[in-house]
C-alpha cells in the first residue's frame, strides 16, 4: 500500500473526468474544490470490481467536504451549508 496522498485539511479538486463506465464519483461534484475531512480506509477499486475483477490494488477513500455554494450556482441556503462525499484517491488532485 502506497502512502496516502492526502491528509485531513488538504484542499483537493475532484477530477473533471467523464468516463462512460461504472464509477462512484457523482457527476455533480466533478471539477469542484473541497477539503479532506477524514481518511475512510482503503477498499478494492469499485471501477474494477464492477467488471468482475478483484479490485486490487486497494484504493484509499476520503470523506471530502464541499461548501454547497461552491457546487451549485445560486445555492439558496446559508453559506455554511456543506455536503460530504466519499471519494476515492484517484479521483482527487491537489486544489490550485
Amino acid at each position: 500500500m502506497n502512502a496516502l496522498r492526502y491528509t485531513p485539511g488538504d484542499r483537493v479538486r475532484v477530477r473533471a473526468a467523464f468516463p462512460p463506465g461504472h464509477v462512484r464519483t457523482p457527476y455533480f461534484v466533478r471539477g469542484c474544490d473541497g477539503e479532506v475531512q477524514e481518511i475512510a480506509g482503503t477498499y478494492p477499486n469499485p471501477e474494477e470490481l464492477a467488471y468482475g475483477r478483484d479490485g486490487k490494488p486497494d484504493v484509499p477513500l476520503y470523506r471530502v467536504s464541499f461548501r454547497q455554494s461552491d457546487i451549485w450556482d445560486g445555492y439558496t441556503g446559508p453559506a455554511d451549508d456543506t455536503i460530504v462525499i466519499d471519494i476515492y484517491e484517484h479521483w482527487l488532485e491537489p486544489a490550485e
Partner: peptide, 14 residues
C-alpha cells in the same frame, strides 16, 4: 438558518 445543514452522499463503501 444558523444551523449548518450537512448532506452526506453515501456513494462508496461507507
Amino acid at each position: 438558518d444558523d444551523v449548518e445543514v450537512r448532506v452526506h452522499d453515501s456513494t462508496a463503501d461507507l
